[in-house]
Design a protein around this nucleic acid. Sequence first.
DNA 1: GTAATTTGACCTCA
DNA 2: TGAGGTCAAATTAC
Length: 304
Amino acid sequence: MDNLGVSTSRMKAIEELLRGRDSAKQLSSVINGSGENGSSANPKKLVKEVLMSFTKSLLLLNSDPTSESHDVSSVQVWDSLKQEDSQESNCKNSTVKSRRGCYKRSRMEQLREMESEAPIDDGHQWRKYGQKEILNAKFPRNYYRCTHRDQGCSAKKQVQRVEEDPILYKTIYHGDHTCKSLENPQIILDPVSPSSSSMFLSFNSLENPVFNSSFPTPSKQECPFLSSSFTSSVKRECKEEVIPPSTSSNDYLISSDLTFDDSPRHVTLSSSTLDSEYKGVDISDVLYDSAQLDHVFEPFLQFR
DNA sequence: GTAATTTGACCTCA
DNA sequence: TGAGGTCAAATTAC
């Protein structure tokens, strides 16, 4: 696609990301104790700036209807916009038993198609209701529907590994969420601290080995501070496909209430959302040098 | 005990 | 007619 039609929202988002990257670099310098650029900046302030940058960028991208970057970690293709087929199945009046298999086939419904390097966590809760071997396809197709179907939410999705590139997962969304589970699926606020600017970031572990090695895909017990939707989805997908942790993306909930202990090299997680045993995790290895930061930001900025 | 997943059967539609 | 989508009982996980 060409970039001529880049919207102002996207340009602003990119500006925000660049600003965030600068702040992250400064933060990196502070953590490394290099103090270059004469940066005596307050690390707390820098963290807030980085988080603010991500938040603003994601808001901008999500509010931009022309943006293809609703999910910055994936390639999204608005496959087709079709009218919802209002035709109700004529099975409505039949008994529960005889209604088996009665469904609206997605002939004219709205669908979105996207590919990502790991099963996408879009912030919504999904329940798997089927798996099907597809003719001439190496991998089965998995069928999910919104957990809040009882609230009338008809959103569904199909997930299937891409044959040509098994690292990729193709996700097709059918219908929109009418449930209130999340109004903005790309930005997940930490339910424990709703006032915080916590947000959900997706880092590609293949492109960012530092994340991969530092953060193997955790279970919920192992990492209770991670978004529950993240851990549940990863757990489910891994169980189905036995995805080794090294091939799944690592999505982490970054909380804004990071604090710093006396040593500038040690960044300590002391979020209220952490269980005591996870407080004191040293993430300085993650934010070690600015070269790695560039690597982290690279996928976000490639849309320029 | 409850919720989620698995899987074979069933149904629709091209 | 068969591929694909869904149902729902059985099973598993928490």
